[in-house]
Simulated scan of single mutants.
Amino acid sequence: MPRDDPDWIIEWRRELGERIADLRAAAHHTQESLSEATGVSRAHIQRIERGTSDPRFGDLLRIAAALDENVTVLIGSPPTQR
């Protein structure tokens, strides 16, 4: 992940991770059970939820499917660029 990303991208990553963590908890998944359901490693899910990793689109699709959500709910709208 580039260290020179603009603040709005860093903020979007953080918000994406929070949405995924909230939806995961609401669906009664642990990081481990979500990992098993998606094939995405638990460590990667943890980094996504912390906002320290850029997930691949395929990972987002698998996570959305396991949480029975549309991927657009996960992605949301990125914060306003400044």
Rank of each mutant, 00 (worst) to 15 (best):
S33C: 07
E18Q: 13
R13P: 02
T38P: 12
I45W: 12
I48C: 12
G39P: 11
L23M: 12
I10P: 00
V71Q: 13
E18C: 01
D54T: 09
A64L: 02
A37T: 01
I75R: 11
R47Y: 13
H28M: 09
L16Q: 10
S35A: 08
D4A: 03
P55L: 06
A25M: 13
E36D: 08
H44Q: 08
T30W: 13
D59T: 11
A37D: 09
P55T: 03
Q46Y: 13
A21D: 13
T38Q: 03
L16F: 07
R24L: 06
Q46V: 03
D54C: 05
S53E: 14
S77E: 12
R56G: 09
Q31K: 09
L61E: 12
Q81F: 02
S35D: 06
P2W: 00
L74K: 04
E11F: 00
A64M: 07
P55F: 05
Q81N: 08
S35H: 11
R82G: 10
Q81D: 08
R14S: 14
T52N: 12
A37W: 05
S77T: 15
W12E: 03
E15W: 03
H44E: 11
N70T: 02
R19C: 04
R42L: 06
A37S: 12
L74Y: 04
P55A: 07
P6H: 02
I10Y: 00
S35R: 15
S35F: 06
T30P: 08
D5S: 06
A66I: 07
S77A: 12
L60A: 02
E11H: 04
S77D: 10
D68I: 01
L34K: 15
R82F: 03
G76K: 10
R3M: 06
H29T: 02
P2K: 12
E69K: 14
D22W: 04
D59N: 13
P55Q: 07
H28D: 14
G51H: 07
Q31I: 00
V40E: 14
E36Q: 08
L23N: 11
A37E: 15
E18F: 04
R24Y: 09
P2N: 13
L67K: 05
D5C: 01
R47T: 06
W8V: 00
E11N: 13
D54N: 14
R14Y: 13
H29R: 04
